[in-house]
Design a protein around this nucleic acid. Structure first.
Lengths: 146, 146
DNA sequence: TTTAAACCTTTTGATACTTAGATTATAAAC
DNA sequence: GTTTATAATCTAAGTATCAAAAGGTTTAAA
């Protein structure tokens, strides 16, 4: 475990952090222009693509504490983009369901969102992107298991 | 600009985000165990490695709004890890300077911090890390220029 | 030399979180 | 069938952030 190896890992951590932050900042501009914050977008996008979700599972999937879920779901419900639906079989559980307005909003934002990401990444060739995907997937999976 | 390319970029964005979040979560545990939050650590580490800094430049380097700098510097000053020093030449400017206690804390945390990062990344070979560094640096620089 | 513009820090008020704990509902064990 | 444990959501209090504006300080221009 040489000092060189440690330095290389540190360097990777730093460039990874910078790339993530820079990308995120740009990507969030698109979302915020449409009146959502990144968390609200993530919740709505989850409901759009994966269907109704128990509140707790939303927390698991987008990494949010239970108190935060209540908060963000309240916000989205106030804005009319989702509604709560009690589970008839287990009355502890509440589902979140996207509304037609929410669906329309995601259909407006999402193509622009992904197009923006593609533009931001145009400096990389398709093969380079694939290499990055493979390496980052391997890294992320390994870290996630800790 | 095919749909495939857009999907590939989106995929890269997702694995990048996941890897970053997973790493960060683990890395922050080390820091928080020592009684600092990630921002406090970043400020203190900057002062340790780069010497005294005008408050404003701290904000630029760790991407923090000016109001937040005041807040975090207050916290660190209360804990005795840094002190403010007025600039004699320009009385608008205040420098932050790490104290002996702050220095001792960084010397305790930093090796553990970088060792932890190295362990978390041991799934990647040195050549793979270098490839990832090159690709992410290219990506980060390109996005940062927007 | 006065005035205006730019600059740095702090303050204020709002937002988006987290943590801990309360509440309510279900499931399990006896 | 009670009791106990577990689960899901919500509430309350506290933390870290940002944006906007205020308060001094310096620089430059008229």
């Amino acid at each position: 475990m040489s000092g060189e190896q440690v330095n290389q890992s540190l360097k990777l951590f730093i460039v990874l952090s910078r790339a993530y932050r820079a990308l995120n900042e740009e990507v969030n501009k698109v979302i915020q222009q449409k009146g959502l914050n990144p968390t609200e977008f993530a919740v709505l996008e989850l409901l759009y693509h994966k269907g109704d979700q128990p509140l707790q599972q939303i927390g698991g999937k987008i990494l949010l504490a239970s108190g935060s879920i209540t908060y963000v779901v309240d916000k989205l419900e106030q804005k009319g983009f989702l509604k709560r639906i009690g589970c008839p079989k287990d009355r502890r559980v509440t589902y979140a369901q996207i509304t037609d307005e929410g669906r329309a909003l995601i259909e407006e934002i999402f193509p622009e969102h992904s197009q923006r990401i593609d533009n931001l990444m145009e400096v990389l060739q398709p093969e380079e992107k694939q290499t990055a995907i493979d390496l980052l997937k391997k890294l992320g999976l390994s870290v996630g298991k800790y």
